[in-house]
Amino acid sequence: MTGAVIASPYPVAPGLPFTDDSRYRRRRARSQAMAGLIAFAAFLGVSILWIILGYVTVKGAPALNLAFFTERPLPYGEVGGGIAPAITGSLMLLVVAAVLGVPIGIGAAIFLVEYGKGSIIEGVRFASDLVAGLPSIVVGVFVWAALVRNVIGNFSGLAGAVALAIIMVPIIIRTVEAVLNLVPHTLREAGLALGVPKWRVILGVVLPTARAGIVTGVVLSVARAGGETAPLLLTTLGNQFFNWDLGKPTGAIPIQLYNYAVAPYPDWHEKAWGAALVLILVVGVLSILTRVATRGSVR
């Protein structure tokens, strides 16, 4: 847009100081050099993503086979073995975390947009921002001290799910609050004018209108929580075996990835790359799907 403006602003008139030809050339060269540097910075940012994605794909693809998805990790030396207990564990943790976190996140967002006033809004939003900024390892330490130590008494899936829920809640609040604000007031007023109670207007009109955006927020929070490792190491610890008991240590893909990666065996390293590829595919597909699915709608 502005390129044309600077391309021809200088009628060359030697003798006048502000149209000095060589000086203008110097300034133009400087401007072009900066444009080059800026384009290079963008290129760098974009290429880092592709380098990492390429690395994970090339290294991880050979590990993916049926056994990888269906078998449990085997002791070193035995052929085969996979990450199946970690997959089922991650699924269980995420479902429980969503059951705990989604009602709180959506409820808080509804409060912020539909009911809250003044300083309470500010306070809740402020707290939500700070919870979003909590280092994930600190969330792990907190859940360990609050649940694992005394209340539950041992490392457990439930504690891990609580930690993941704490990470999910502020993400859900932020996205859902934004999308509820986009729902036109006339829709609410139409409902209220018909005599529908406010809470039924919210449940029956506002939330369905904002559905796409709400789903986006929830899916993004699940994607984010699915890759968390540090808080899980302190709360569910990990498990090599299938486990459906929320009161016991549970495997998770990131924990299994970590255990495979830090072991000294090349075969396990390949499995770690495989687990990373699975993690990236799931997270990436979720991110892209929500983005495409909600393009153009209220979100």
Binding site: I104, G107, F111, Y115, A127, V131, V139, P170, I202
Partner: peptide, 30 residues
Amino acid sequence: GVDGDRAFAGATLAAALAVPAILLAVFLLL
């Protein structure tokens, strides 16, 4: 009507207050 509204508003308030409560609990426990 009114009762439902009150209950629903109360529930969302509870959800909203859970967030500062978590934050406070983290600071306190640590």
